[in-house]
Amino acid sequence: MEGFLASCTSGGCGAKIGAADLHDYLQALPQQHEPNLLVGFNDADDAAVYKISPERALISTIDFFSPMVDDPYTFGTIAAANALSDVYSMGGQPLYALNIVCFPERLPKKALAEMLSGGAAKVQEAGIVLVGGHSIYDHEPKYGLAVTGEIAPDQLIQNHTPEAGDVLILTKALGVSIVLAAARADVGDEQATAAAIASMQRLNKYAAAKFNDFQVHACTDITGFGLLAHSLEMAGTEHTLVIDTAELPILAKAAEFAAEFLVTAGGERNREHVGNQVDLTGITPAMQELLFDPQTSGGLLISVAEKDAALLLAAIQEDDPVARIIGVVNAREQEPIILL
């Protein structure tokens, strides 16, 4: 629908406030001292978790952004898949969702209906219910979901709890924002763009459903902060992630576009945030851009016990064949991330 994407100055998870700025802003908020709050914003985790009984905790998350594709229905599916991902990354099961809608009065109402239909289709695929929402007029269209899920407290998976000796699995290919930047600049590849869109529409539900049979120690979804910044969160202060860049799944044409300097502002913010925490010596400029590239509705980065890694990968690849083992977790060495 003409004008839908053109009405936006930025889109997808690439529009996120930079990680460094966000950290500074959050410092002004009061510290939380609620014993039933298992995970709050102090943990920089993917969602909040609140225990309501010894056997049950609620997972609460919210995610929305402006379009990165021009078709309203497709945008709705991507935004909904992205919002649901935080629950899956923590090992939880979504229960219900609420729409979050910002929409310009000047755009056709048909576009709004199609956007909401796309979101509803993904909610239905997740096997949950859409129970309402909130909408306002805005200068740019924006859409997403507030999602509530559940998990047993002793089965909760966080983003910063890997164990030394673990193996790292990445379930989706990198390069989404770079491929879309090329398409927006009219130098893209039709098949590459279609593959990027299909990846963003893919629910992480299918990979996360395999967790129960294996020792998954940590997990996060790779979104706006890119692979490196999310990996830094996983490494924390006690571990080093060793990532083999030759094993990274990468979308078709993404490396080629990156070599041609088709990069994004979000990727540059991620580079500034990571700064000198990661040694990029020996890593080509194109690969660097892929490591910093903001992923919209990206895959899961999973830290799993070594003995279970091959079996978990095989199980995930039944539904997500692009998934790869990309590295290992060591006790903290000199750096939090080592790139091979």
Rank of each mutant, 00 (worst) to 15 (best):
F257H: 06
G76N: 06
A195T: 12
G118A: 13
H217P: 03
L22P: 05
A120R: 08
L29M: 13
G266A: 08
F214P: 10
D45L: 08
E333V: 09
N276A: 12
R324Y: 04
V263N: 08
R56L: 15
T237Y: 08
A183R: 06
N204D: 05
Y50K: 09
I62C: 07
K109L: 02
A48F: 00
N42L: 10
L168N: 07
T61G: 04
Y50E: 09
Q93W: 00
S177I: 08
I169G: 09
G149C: 12
F225Y: 15
A246E: 09
L112Q: 04
L340A: 00
P108C: 02
L170G: 10
A152V: 10
L312N: 11
A323H: 05
G266F: 01
N270P: 01
I222K: 02
V87L: 11
S7E: 08
R184E: 06
Q27E: 08
A207Q: 00
I169T: 02
K307F: 04
L228S: 13
T237N: 15
I157H: 00
A20C: 01
R184K: 09
P321S: 00
A6Y: 03
P153L: 04
S199Q: 07
T245C: 15
V278N: 05
D86M: 02
R332I: 07
K253T: 09
G298S: 07
C102V: 07
E150Q: 15
E268V: 13
E105W: 11
K253N: 12
E163S: 11
D24C: 13
G188S: 07
A209H: 01
A196H: 04
L130K: 11
E190S: 10
Q288P: 07
G175S: 01
V179P: 05
S177P: 10
A20D: 12
Y96I: 01
A121E: 14
L280P: 00
A305Y: 05
L232N: 12
E55S: 08
T245L: 12
I222S: 04
L301V: 13
A265M: 14
A121M: 05
T296S: 00
